[in-house]
Amino acid sequence: MDLAVKIGKIKLKNPIMVASGTFGYAEEFKDITDLKGIGAIITKSVTMKPKQGNKPPRLWETTAGLLNSIGLQNEGVEDFIKNKLPFLKSVGVPVIVSIAGETINEYAQLAKKLNIPAVSGLEINISCPNIKTKHRLFAQDAKAAASAVKAVKKNTKKTTITKLSPEVTDICEIARAVEKGGSDAISVINTIKGMAVDIETQKPQLGDITGGLSGPAIKPVALRIVWETTQTVRIPVIGVGGIMTADDAIEFLLCGATAVQIGTANFLNPQAVIAVAEGIEAYLKEKNLSNLKEIVGRLK
């Protein structure tokens, strides 16, 4: 059974990655997850300088969903290279580093710093909803999105995936812009901004008031955006948003996703990636197919 896929120059043994921010730097899961069974590891977003993140509480559960407001907490790129990357490299699966900049220049610098052998590729996070800026997200402006991609591409030969926000008027316009900017793939979607209120205290449930919604609740939105963007761009589209099971992943593949990312499901089941890979294989067998490519984009 051939589950292998290629995203840019990266070869994955199966199409299932772990989504940024939900799997830390993989080491946290090493005791209870078969890390070698993961198609690719996407790290928690790395920034130029250390970031302390948002005020707690940072999590709130909604019906079949999860609001988070972490705020890109991380120790910065230097610390990442020194203290997190060695373990990631030792796992032996492609390591895709998620990068988040506050300016175009920061994206360029991050790309330069991470142009090192242990890194297989970069996911350009231009769509985190939990960062306070004066401007719109880069992902909410076609020109800005393309500029971020160009700045990264100028400084790296590595495969780039650009992560887009669902909160735009025309997702296809943004997808086209980042494709033109040179991105090797897109991943859709980042979380959807939401909020929740405690009616007893009459305060927001999250310390930062709003947060990004993930989990099964957002799957239909993610699926629709995968379907729309695969009609528009030629570069691979990676589906992410509420995938909990193999059946969910297969829906994304049928809608045209070349690969998928598992996020919130890692919290429920640290072996979710493995279960999804096995489930896809079983599905292909049942349909008498031998290659994953035979279902990608085959929505009737």
Binding site: G21, T22, F23, G24, Y25, E28, F29, I32, K44, G53, K55, P56, P57, R58, L59, W60, E61, L66, N68, I70, Q73, N266, F267, P270
Partner: peptide, 17 residues
């Protein structure tokens, strides 16, 4: 006690100041 995501130290959802 804090609301937790992964429980493994990865998601940074349960931080205390």
């Amino acid at each position: 006690e804090e609301r937790m995501g992964c429980g493994l130290g990865a998601c940074l959802g349960c931080v205390v100041n």
